[in-house]
Design a protein around this nucleic acid. Structure first.
Length: 613
DNA sequence: TGGCAGTCAATAGG
DNA sequence: CCTATTGACTGCCA
């Protein structure tokens, strides 16, 4: 384009010349372009090759890993060992420890852990949600375990520190970080049980480990413990149990804490088994008060087969692996996510199999595809196409007339709203946290279950019965309280009788308020506390409401792939369901205060005026 | 303590 | 009765 700016007033001959020159340079230009593209192509090819090599490497590793996993799963005797050890320790503690009260509860706890563990992936953990309560807050220390780990640490410390070894603190910290992440153990739990430190301190130590030489004896202690922790499978396992127990909440289909691949498998297994035996707990639990009826549920019969745990794990592994190969369905997932497997062969009938809709029976997934172990990834590096999964789930639900609520409650352990969100705004796999991935793994497995629809339909029926009963029960009581005025003079009614204790009414922003908030967001997506205060005051809202709004708005903008602080005047962000790719590249602007004052003040004043009318 | 991910309950709209 | 949206909350991390 810039070639066209030659002086127009040249003589004809010169004109031709100019043309020639132009053409020439055009050609040059094109040549360059071609070269560029070629090199680009090469680059891409190279990268692809690298990637393939990498993947192959990974596959090899994974294969090994899986093998290890399998053997590991087969031999579970060490649970007995842990059991006895913990028993012993507990006995010790009981005699020595002063904190007898908390000890008792903890001990009981450990028993549970032990028990559940020894029963190897069995069901039945479902019903003690007591733990949930004690979990989050401050857990007044679990003396037995802590001392268990401590003791072991101490016993080793002599050996370790005596030999004057310089520890690589950075490396250690890194390893610990990775381990925690892999095992889905929180820093808080780790800090509390292993280091005897708070989460904040742990975070600090892990993020900025001081060199060994600069540490005092006391400062070295956490690193010694970390080192020991890393090398001691028992501690690791025990801690993991604790974390899992603390996280609690077992929902249908899959267990609670996700995590490292074998954990995922374990949980899947656990849950699946759980489901095979006890069919109804969480959802029923809510309704239990009112004479629970026909207990021995239907699904027992629905389950395809009951296998030995080991077999079952195998089949899960196989399943997921197979599915990795299948899951890439270009027709469904044009834009998003899955890269690594994109090129794998696609089975043409894969979709029909899953939701051959109307007929519940279609023996799907019985594909005798061999799925060689060596050619698959293990769960840890699982790369699911979330978009395709949600598409398929949506379709399956629609076709079979199953609501999000039922699906959410029975399959994911989530509410309808969460399901809705999940299905209509799936995040790319890579952007998901472990917890977030769990939902997709569940959906994925659900899609594979030949009886998925059938089971859900059964659940649905049951659920309906339960609900009408619940409704009846509630109808009688406090229905007077249904209608209450909320702070803004709107009626708040409960649809069908779920009379709740009167809560703080939900804030509903007016269009003007929203506009004002968005206006500020455009210039200052991360407002300072001061700005928030001021905003809140000006809009006559709680400051927590304002800051919540900013959190949510940022989060949802990210989700929808709306890049951060662009100036727009539209007040509703377009919900782009398109590729969400670039959403994560966020620039976090300095929360500079005051710059928005002039920009937006007029908005506030007008809003305020409106409110006063 | 602030930011974020994941959720939930309440609500809007079909 | 269903799905989508949205303000609020929890737990985690740095």
């Amino acid at each position: 384009m810039d070639l066209c700016v030659f002086p127009a007033a040249s003589p004809p001959s010169a004109d031709v010349e100019t043309m020639v020159v132009m053409t020439h340079s055009d050609v040059q230009h094109l040549k360059q372009e071609v070269l560029r593209l070629q090199s680009l192509l090469q680059e891409v090819q190279k990268r692809a090759a690298n990637h393939v090599a990498l993947l192959q490497q990974q596959l090899a590793n994974k294969a090994q890993h899986i093998e290890r996993l399998q053997t590991k799963l087969q031999s579970q005797q060490d649970y007995d060992k842990i059991k006895t050890e913990l028993r012993t320790l507990r006995a010790q503690m009981q005699t020595t420890d002063v904190m007898s009260v908390s000890l008792r509860s903890v001990s009981a706890d450990n028993d549970l852990v032990i028990q559940t563990e020894t029963t190897k992936f069995h069901h039945s953990i479902g019903k003690e949600e007591a733990l949930n309560e004690s979990s989050s807050s401050s857990s007044p220390s679990s003396p037995s375990l802590q001392s268990f780990i401590k003791e072991e640490t101490d016993s080793c410390r002599d050996v370790e520190s005596e030999d004057g070894d310089e520890l690589d603190t950075a490396g250690l910290a890194q390893q610990v970080k990775e381990a925690l992440q892999r095992l889905n153990i929180g820093q808080r739990v780790f800090g509390h049980y292993v280091l005897g430190l708070s989460q904040g301190t742990v975070s600090d130590i892990l993020a900025r480990p001081k060199p060994w030489s600069k540490l005092t004896n006391r400062g070295r202690e956490p690193f010694l413990r970390m080192k020991h922790f890393l090398s001691d499978q028992h501690s690791i396992r025990t801690l993991r149990h604790i974390q899992e127990r603390l996280r609690g909440v077992f929902v249908p289909w899959v267990g609670a804490a996700d995590v490292s691949s074998d954990d995922v498998i374990r949980n899947i297994l656990q849950q699946a088994k759980h489901e095979m035996h006890t069919t109804n707990d969480s959802s029923e639990a809510a309704l239990q008060e009112e004479e629970e009826e026909e207990e021995e549920e239907d699904d027992g019969t629905l389950e395809p087969s009951v296998q030995s745990p080991a077999d079952f794990v195998q089949s899960i592994i196989q399943k997921v692996k197979c599915d990795l190969d299948e899951d890439t369905d270009p027709s469904v997932s044009p834009s998003s996510v899955s890269r690594s497997s994109q090129t794998l062969p696609v089975d043409p009938d894969q979709r029909t199999q899953v939701f051959n809709g109307s007929k519940v029976k279609t023996e799907p997934r019985q594909r005798p595809r061999s799925c060689p172990i060596s050619s698959s990834c293990e769960l840890q590096s699982l790369d699911l196409d979330t978009f395709s999964i949600t598409q398929r789930v949506k379709e399956a639900l629609t076709v079979n007339n199953i609501g999000q609520r039922v699906f959410g409650e029975e399959v994911l352990g989530l509410t309808q709203s969460s399901v809705s969100e999940l299905l209509s705004h799936p995040k790319p796999w890579t952007k998901l946290s472990l917890k977030g991935k769990e939902n997709f793994i569940r959906m994925h497995l659900w899609l594979q279950d030949p009886q998925n629809i059938q089971k859900l339909n059964a659940m649905k029926k049951k659920d309906q019965r339960g609900q009408s009963r619940l409704k009846r029960a509630l109808m009688g009581s406090d229905c007077e309280s249904h209608r209450t005025l909320d702070a803004r003079g709107r009626w708040v009614c409960d649809h069908w009788g779920r009379c709740e204790v009167v809560k703080r009414p939900r804030v509903i922003f007016s269009a003007q308020e929203r506009e004002a908030l968005i206006a500020v967001y455009q210039t200052e997506p991360y407002p300072s506390p001061h700005t928030i205060e001021r905003l809140a005051a000006q809009l006559d809202l709680h400051s927590s409401t304002v800051s919540n709004w900013f959190y949510n708005y940022r989060s949802r903008s990210r989700r929808d792939g709306v890049s951060e602080p662009v100036q727009t005047r539209t007040f509703q962000n377009p919900v782009g369901s398109g590729p969400v790719s670039a959403s994560s590249v966020r620039i976090k602007p300095e929360p500079s205060d005051g710059q928005m004052e002039e920009d937006t003040d007029h908005v506030f004043t007008s809003v305020k005026r409106e409110k006063e009318l």
